[in-house]
Amino acid sequence: MQRKHLIVFTLATVLMLLGFNIINNYFHEKNRAALVNNDTPVMTKSDNEMNNNRAEQPLGEQPKAIIDNVTADIKQAQQAEQQRLEQMQESVQ
């Protein structure tokens, strides 16, 4: 190859890689922004109240309050799951 052709080929390759990186970065940022918007936890009023209740308790009681809150959340989730399961079984029959 002549030097002129080699230089043109190299510049074309560099421009193609640069374009690929710009496009890839655009889609990566777009997907990351969508994930951030979907994964952002929403703090409800009850969450704020539970946090305030924990802060008002003596330091020795706070771990127990946290465990009690988590246990209540687990029971509530299990009940909701059981109801969904029953609804699914009814719809199948």
Results as ranks from 00 to 15, higher is better:
Leu18Arg: 07
Leu18Met: 12
Leu18Ala: 14
Gly19Met: 09
Asn21Leu: 13
Asn21His: 07
Asn21Ile: 05
Ile22Asn: 03
Ile23Gln: 08
Ile23Met: 10
Ile23Leu: 13
Tyr26Val: 01
Phe27Met: 09
Phe27Arg: 10
Phe27Glu: 09
His28Leu: 15
His28Arg: 15
His28Ser: 15
Glu29Ala: 09
Glu29Gly: 04
Glu29Tyr: 08
Lys30His: 10
Lys30Tyr: 09
Asn31Met: 07
Arg32Cys: 01
Ala33Leu: 00
Ala33Phe: 00
Ala34Cys: 02
Ala34Met: 05
Leu35Val: 05
Leu35Ile: 03
Leu35Arg: 11
Val36Tyr: 05
Val36Ala: 11
Val36Glu: 15
Asn37Asp: 14
Asn38Ser: 14
Thr40Tyr: 04
Pro41Gln: 01
Pro41Leu: 05
Pro41Arg: 04
Val42Cys: 03
Met43Asn: 04
Met43Cys: 03
Thr44Met: 02
Ser46His: 10
Ser46Gln: 15
Asn48Ser: 12
Met50Val: 10
Asn51Ile: 11
Asn52Arg: 12
Ala55Tyr: 01
Ala55Cys: 01
Glu56Ser: 12
Glu56Gly: 06
Gln57Tyr: 04
Gln57Arg: 11
Leu59Arg: 12
Leu59Phe: 09
Leu59Thr: 09
Gly60Met: 14
Glu61Val: 01
Glu61Pro: 00
Gln62Gly: 00
Pro63Glu: 02
Pro63Ser: 03
Pro63Thr: 02
Lys64Pro: 04
Ala65His: 02
Ala65Ser: 12
Ile66Met: 08
Ile67Cys: 02
Ile67Phe: 05
Ile67His: 04
Asp68Ser: 06
Asp68Phe: 01
Val70Lys: 08
Val70Ser: 02
Thr71Leu: 00
Thr71Met: 06
Ala72Lys: 09
Ala72Phe: 04
Ala72Leu: 06
Asp73Met: 15
Asp73Thr: 05
Asp73Cys: 06
Ile74Ala: 04
Gln76Glu: 13
Gln76Met: 08
Ala77His: 04
Gln78Thr: 04
Gln79Leu: 08
Ala80Glu: 11
Ala80Asn: 08
Glu81Asn: 10
Glu81Arg: 10
Gln82Arg: 13
Gln82Pro: 05
Gln82Phe: 01
Gln83Val: 11
Gln83Pro: 01
Arg84Asp: 11
Leu85Met: 06
Leu85Phe: 07
Glu86Ala: 13
Glu86Ile: 08
Glu86Asp: 14
Glu86Lys: 12
Gln87Lys: 14
Gln87Tyr: 06
Met88Trp: 07
Gln89Arg: 15
Gln89Phe: 06
Gln89Ser: 07
Gln89Lys: 13
Glu90Gly: 03
Glu90Arg: 15
Ser91Lys: 14
Ser91Pro: 00
